[in-house]
Write a protein that binds this DNA or RNA. Structure first.
Lengths: 233, 233
DNA sequence: CGAGCACTTGAAAGATTTCAAGTCCAGTGG
DNA sequence: CCACTGGACTTGAAATCTTTCAAGTGCTCG
């Protein structure tokens, strides 16, 4: 519980992101720069809650460094993870009034938050911003739809494979599995045992390789891609 | 393949919906009236495609009468139904550029469509409309999130139960199951056999009752509600 | 009245989950 | 510096829920 990636508030446009060598940043991010002066950066520590499920939705967020998960809990403890968010990605848009999901830091992280009300007020005057917001939301909706297919119609192997590919596409370089097996399981609608077994299988046949505890490398992308869309087993 | 519910184009605001005794109409609808003059009504027949998966997204839609499903197909034929849309509800918002899902009429239906470009242009000038659009999208996003929990973490019985309750809440009066077992199965991430068996079970213990072929009545709402959130069987 | 399709039902096969031990580390304390 | 403790992860075996495969059944449309 010490030493965050960065401590100072970071007010520069997110475009400049020298820390880790990420891709050019997802297109989804751009527009938020219009209101960079509204943003305030916040440091959160591993497993710390950024906002709670059903909290009034007062801010939009963007990850600057570290990573975040959004989760929903059922009364009996079953859990669903909605998203894993990497640097540059935005969250907190799933809110009409109150947040649908809670947001928690996967690891020590720096996030930037923008007051909802003011952003929306601004959007009322700025057509470009307004459209940008709609696009961001659209992107979220599309992702949610893709998840439906995964959760509703894919086998365990397919889910794991597409999950790894998705991570690989978002994070340049080796994948950092900052999330626990439980997080992955709750993201994919599986149990931790099934996740573990499938990962073990992939390690055994040389499709992936893991170092340390959470650094993962894809050694045979083709195999993963085949596995991601393979009917039954 | 004959006799639509209504043949003439219907240009009145959707508020007036005398045909079947529906609820006051979901709140999600309201805002679209701002651009009633942009809308054009279209008649579609049972199983007819309104737009295809990956078609360029040129219109936003609203159901006037009848009902609609949105579906996505995987290469190997697996299918996921995203939504069942009842009168008053809107669709075609899941589009950045091209539609994520195809939309097909569940039964002969009348839908109203609004040119995307023009609506968005209008939204650029009209803050209220812009916000309304964002709210509609938000509502869709929230629904998608709820589906995630259903698809990722619920048992077959829970899925069926919550599906029936959801339908009951949207359609006042007895539920009309305009969709086939296959549609329901693909909506809930189950097989038609499982859907059929579960429904049979519910009929057997008197929780629901079915007439004709698609009219369904909930006779024991409490039982359904219990079943909708019951861990394991 | 017959054909075809949707739905139901039964039995067997499977894929995941559940239950139960292990194993592996990281952080702690001796 | 090294053994120890707790939590996360892995692995194995049995239990289960769903699916798959296979017939029925019943309706609707010609």
């Amino acid at each position: 519980m010490s030493g965050h990636t960065q401590t100072a508030l970071q007010l520069q446009p997110v475009q400049a992101q020298p820390a880790n060598a990420r891709k050019p940043l997802p297109p989804s991010v751009a527009g938020l720069n219009l209101l960079e002066n509204l943003g305030v950066s916040i440091v959160v520590r591993r497993d710390q809650e950024i906002y709670g499920q059903d909290d009034p939705a007062e801010y939009y967020y963007q990850v600057i460094s570290g990573s975040v998960r959004t989760v929903k809990l059922m009364a009996d403890g079953r859990r669903q993870v909605s998203e894993f968010l990497l640097p540059g990605e935005v969250f907190g848009f799933d809110a009409l009034d109150r947040y649908d999901f809670a947001a928690e830091a996967l690891e020590d992280a720096l996030v930037r938050r923008y007051p909802r009300r003011r952003v929306e007020a601004l959007a009322g005057q700025d057509a470009a911003l307004s459209q940008r917001l709609r696009q961001l939301m659209n992107a979220k909706l599309r992702q949610a739809h893709d998840r439906m297919l995964v959760l509703g119609r894919m086998t365990a192997s397919e889910r794991i494979a597409s999950f790894l590919l998705q991570l690989a596409d978002r994070a340049a370089g080796p994948i950092e599995l900052a999330m626990s097996r439980r997080d992955i399981a709750d993201y994919l609608g599986l149990t931790i045992e099934t996740v573990s077994r499938t990962l073990t299988m992939l390690k055994a046949d040389g499709t992936i390789r893991m170092f340390k505890k959470c650094r993962l490398e894809i050694r045979n992308r083709a195999a993963l891609e085949a596995m991601a869309s393979e009917r039954r087993h």
